Structure formats: C-alpha cells, structure tokens
Simulated scan of single mutants.
Amino acid sequence: MGEVIGLLKVTVVQGKRLVVRDFKSSDPYVIVKLGNQTLKTKVINSCLNPVWNEEFTFSVTEPVGVLNLEVFDRDRFKSDDKMGRAHLNIQPIASAARLRRVLHVSDGETMIRKVVPANDNCLVRESSVNCVDGDIVQDVWLRLCEVESGEIELKIKWVDHPSVARPQAPLV
C-alpha cells in the first residue's frame, strides 16, 4: 500500500426508491469501502427512502482507488439481503485537489471539473468537483446496480494529508 496522499470524508446522505426485501419494506444500511478500509452506516428500520447523514473518513493512497458501496437489508434470523451496489472513481476529486494546490485556488467557489456518468462510476447525472473556500467537494447521486431500483446520495470532501499540503512560511 502506498503513501497516504489525503483523506476522503464521505457523507452517506440518503437513499431513494430502495427495493423492498421484507414483507412491505426494508431495513437498509450501507457498507462503504475504499481499498482495505470498510465502514458501515446504522440500520434504518422499515424505510425505502432512508436518511443516514453519516460521515466517514478514509485514508487515500496512490494509486487512487474506487469507492465501493453495498446496500443491504438487515434480517434478524437469516443472512442480510442485498439491495444493490455502486462505485465511484475518486480520481477526479484527487486530481482536483492537486490542481487546486497548483493554481492556489482558495476563496469563493470555483468549479474545477465535471464528471459525467460512465463505466467507471454509477452516476445518475453529471456531477461537478468544486473548490469551495479552499475545500474540494463533490455531491453525487449513485444508481444502485444489480437491482430493480434505488439511488444513494453522497457528499464527498477531500482533505490534504499534511505531507502534501501547501507549503507554509518557515517559523523564525
């Protein structure tokens, strides 16, 4: 595993139109993976449009990987049911962070790049990577694969690792 180049703060905001896996509803939770790091949201009982608003922090190393999500329905007496999966290439946000350092963008809001739905992501619609007051952020809606319906909203924020942060004036 390579050197840490930054942190990725991922907020799992909400799900929409998730599939029914129990009698009339589901008890969904999301597993989020980046490399060998795995984190899990809380379970929202009996809900097909859950709101989690849970933030997770992942270390990002070179080569920059893919953020993977799996949604499950929690069951008490049998194994949990799959409710879909999605993935997002995080190279665009990592590249935007490098570009921000080169261009010294820090004030206001600047769109750095657009990301369109493609084979290397599960985007529902075009998304933009923005620099907002020095922070690199991206809001995305991901379509769940291998399932009849369902989308997950994420808010992603890049945090530079101290070793790659902008140089500061030396102390005297």
Score class of each variant (00 low, 15 high):
Arg85Thr: 13
Ala86Ser: 05
Asp80Ala: 00
Val115Arg: 04
Met83Gly: 07
Glu54Thr: 12
Ile136Phe: 03
Gln138Leu: 05
Arg100Asp: 00
Asp81Arg: 13
Leu88Ser: 07
Ile93Asp: 01
Asp73Leu: 07
Val71Asn: 03
Asp73Met: 08
Ser127Phe: 00
Val102His: 10
Trp141Asn: 13
Val64Asp: 02
His87Tyr: 02
Leu69Val: 00
Cys131Lys: 05
Ile93Asn: 01
Ile152Cys: 02
Phe58His: 05
Val64Cys: 02
Val51Leu: 10
Arg76Trp: 14
Val66Cys: 07
Pro117Asp: 02
Asp139Gln: 12
Gly150Val: 00
Cys122Leu: 02
Glu62Arg: 14
Asp80Ser: 01
Asn53Met: 08
Ile136Lys: 01
Val137Pro: 03
Ala118Glu: 09
Glu146Tyr: 13
Ile90Gly: 00
Glu146Asp: 15
Leu103Ala: 15
Pro50Leu: 02
Lys114Met: 11
Leu67Tyr: 00
Val129Arg: 02
Arg101Gly: 14
Ser127Tyr: 01
Asn68Glu: 12
Pro117Arg: 00
Arg98Pro: 13
Leu142His: 01
Leu67Gln: 04
Ser59Tyr: 11
Arg125Cys: 12
Ser128Gly: 05
Ala96Met: 15
Pro117Cys: 03
Leu48Glu: 09
Cys145Gly: 06
Trp52Asp: 04
Leu48Tyr: 05
Glu146Ile: 04
Val60Ala: 09
Glu55Trp: 12
Val66Ile: 13
Ile90Trp: 03
Leu144Gln: 01
Val116Trp: 09
Trp52Ala: 05
Ala97Val: 15
Cys122Ile: 03
Lys114Gly: 13
Val102Gln: 11
Ser59Pro: 06
Trp52Cys: 04
Val60Ser: 07
Val71Lys: 04
Gln91Pro: 10
Trp141Ala: 14
Pro92Ile: 15
Cys131Asn: 12
Glu55Thr: 15
Lys155His: 10
Leu48Asp: 08
Arg113Lys: 14
Met83Asp: 02
Gly108Pro: 09
His87Ile: 04
Cys122Met: 05
Arg74Met: 13
Glu70Lys: 13
Val116Ala: 11
Val124Trp: 02
Gly150Asp: 00
Asp73Ser: 15
Leu154Ala: 07
Asp80Asn: 06
Ser79Thr: 15
Asp107Ala: 14
His104Phe: 08
Cys122Thr: 15
Leu103Gln: 14
Cys131Asp: 06
Ser106Ala: 06
Arg113Gln: 14
Leu99Cys: 11
Gly150Trp: 01
Lys78Ile: 01
Pro63Lys: 06
Met83Arg: 04
Glu55Cys: 14
Trp141Phe: 09
Glu62Leu: 12
Pro50Ala: 01
Pro92His: 14
Ile93Ala: 01
Trp52Ile: 04
Glu109His: 11
Ile93Gln: 03
Glu153Phe: 10
Ala94Arg: 06
Ser59Gly: 07
Asn119Thr: 07
Glu109Trp: 06
Ser128Lys: 12
Met111Phe: 08
Ala86Val: 06
Lys78His: 05
Leu88Ala: 05
